[in-house]
Design a protein around this nucleic acid. Sequence first.
DNA 1: AGCTCATGGCGAG
DNA 2: TCGCCCTGAGCTG
Length: 269
Amino acid sequence: MPEGNVIHHQARRLSRAFRQHQVRIDSPQGRFAEGARLLTGHTVTKVEAHGKHLFIGFDNRRWIHIHLGLFGKWRFGTGEPPEPQGQLRLRIMTDERYAELRGPTVCEVLDAAERKAAIARIGPDPIRKDADPDRAWVKVHRSAAPIGSLLMNQQVFAGVGNIYRAEVLFRHGISPYRPGRDITREEFDAIWEDLVVLMTAGTKRGRIDTVRLEHLPEAMGRAPREDRHGGEVYVYRRAGRECYLCDTEVLIADMQGRNLYWCPACQMS
DNA sequence: AGCTCATGGCGAG
DNA sequence: TCGCCCTGAGCTG
């Protein structure tokens, strides 16, 4: 259940484990059987993330393209892989380690051109050094859609998910309902820079922390809190509780079928 | 055992 | 906008 930071984290982990190794690949569940047959015995040359998309490159110029969706999960281990349990789509193995993939929305083999096309379909990814924020700015600037929706749109900001969407808007005091075209260039630049910082930190830690030190519950004289996703946040999943900064009740609403969290006082417009 | 929810995204209408 | 796909965790009984 990952945002871009987790995918980048996993890409590094897969790279450390398998790059320049000849690997065995199978699909106990069977739904990746053909891909496994095509790639088993080949050497991993590169692992990279673009937004929430993961690409594993092989020495026969093929790539595995993976998108975890809401449910996808990797499990890593050392030594002999255990007997397959549950719906195990894909296993990558060497004599030393293994990685198991369950529940992805996408797990397919692409050639070089198809990989390129898949990357071209998504917007700039704040975690990537080669990202061009102007591509996102143009889309935001021209859009009547609310910024809360644009931040979740992978063709505008690749890798941003529900947590970073809520948190970055809170940190900049911007209402999720403000139309994209009413975001100033200064505000956009501040949002982008903040996403770079937050998501890069999230990649290293493998969790999402967005609360400034001086605003942490301990610093504010409040009880510490740890949400299920493991990080410390201002508004995400805090509906009905007090805003850390102004004590107003954090709100929840449905925005295009996803839960949206914000403080109506700190983010008036 | 069964229900609900989840850091996502697609296609039908 | 809704339904659907994929899986597992955390409840409720």
